[in-house]
């Protein structure tokens, strides 16, 4: 059974191009569902509509069988929301914030302590500290506790790990996986592509529309180009040279490699064509190796080809 059914949601702000146009998807109970896409793609607007904070211009959302517009008060009891901007009370202590959110939801810290325990234990040494004085990672952990303290059936998280270091991000995702095993449905957005692979399914959003919805594995399988990586000590100077030459490939830096994606059908010819290309243009010889794409490569391909065909 679906936890969330989104049907034909549209939303505009004033005369600007629509923030969301005709967005539809379902999220299954107990699923971790990821929303990824460029900034301004409509992710936050969608979160605000799903959590009853904003009404859509048209369309309908059903959460756990409840209509988010008509039954918004009931919906609020069943969902937890961790918004993209820090939204706790900076002048209240860690403990006071959690207590406040528990009371607001007619719950208590005791009642649902088991659910938040692994995170709460990390916060305990700071429980008398004001929330505004916590480090970025700790703020996020407290926000998560506050969003979970009434044991929601669905947890919404809008970019919970933006600005968080890689080790803390991994820990945060371990917590999310743990929440999922307790039967809570999770909808999460992220700008980090490595995190997208930890979702059961991903919806890729751009300019208010959903371009594709699939599992991370499916998205990788659907990669159309042939992807190669080039080892070079001077990625950005190589890029500058490549910019001046018309070519039938897409290229971009990826860590210490340059990724090159070719549109050629006959992938076996590519290494020799590449050799020809670097010799003709007097580029230093660089090795070229075929690799399988990551989610980030797929994202770049999907977004850029979508822009091309507009």
């Amino acid at each position: 059974m679906s936890a969330i059914i989104v049907e034909h949601i549209s939303k505009s702000y004033g005369d600007n191009s629509p923030a969301l146009s005709d967005v539809s998807f379902d999220v299954a109970r107990g699923e971790v569902f990821g929303l990824v896409g460029p900034d301004g793609g409509g992710k936050t607007t969608l979160f605000n509509i799903m959590t009853t904070l904003l009404f859509p211009d048209s369309g309908k959302i059903t959460l756990l069988g409840l209509d988010v517009e008509k039954d918004y008060l009931k919906v609020r009891e069943r969902v937890g929301y961790l918004p993209g901007t820090f939204s706790l009370y900076p002048d209240l202590t860690v403990e006071e914030n959690l207590h406040f959110f528990a009371i607001m939801h007619k719950s208590s810290i005791k009642e649902n302590q088991a659910l938040i325990l692994p995170i709460w234990e990390q916060l305990l040494p700071f429980k008398k500290r004001r929330a505004g004085k916590l480090s970025g990672g700790m703020k996020q952990k407290l926000s998560l506790c506050c969003a979970l303290i009434h044991r929601p059936d669905i947890l919404f998280l809008d970019e919970p790990t933006t600005g968080v270091d890689p080790v803390s991000r991994r820990e945060f995702w371990d917590i999310l996986t743990n929440i999922q095993t307790r039967g809570i449905t999770v909808v999460v957005s992220t700008p980090y592509m490595d995190e997208a692979t930890r979702c059961d399914r991903i919806a890729l959003m751009q300019e208010g529309k959903i371009i594709t919805i699939a599992t991370p594995e499916q998205i990788i399988q659907n990669f159309k180009g042939a992807l190669f990586r080039v080892k070079t000590d001077h990625i950005f100077s190589l890029l500058q040279v490549m910019d001046t030459i018309p070519s039938r490939c897409r290229y971009y830096p990826a860590g210490d490699y340059l990724h090159v994606s070719f549109y050629e059908e006959d992938t076996e010819k590519i290494p020799s064509l590449w050799q020809q290309f670097i010799q003709q243009n007097g580029l230093p010889a660089h090795s070229l190796n075929r690799i399988s794409p990551t989610i980030e490569d797929c994202f770049i391909e999907l977004i850029e080809s979508n822009l091309l065909f507009k």
């Binding site: 460029p38 933006t162 600005g163 994202f299 770049i300």
Partner: peptide, 10 residues
Amino acid sequence: TSGVDPIVRR
């Protein structure tokens, strides 16, 4: 580049 998508980051 905090919170910025992969294309814009590049």
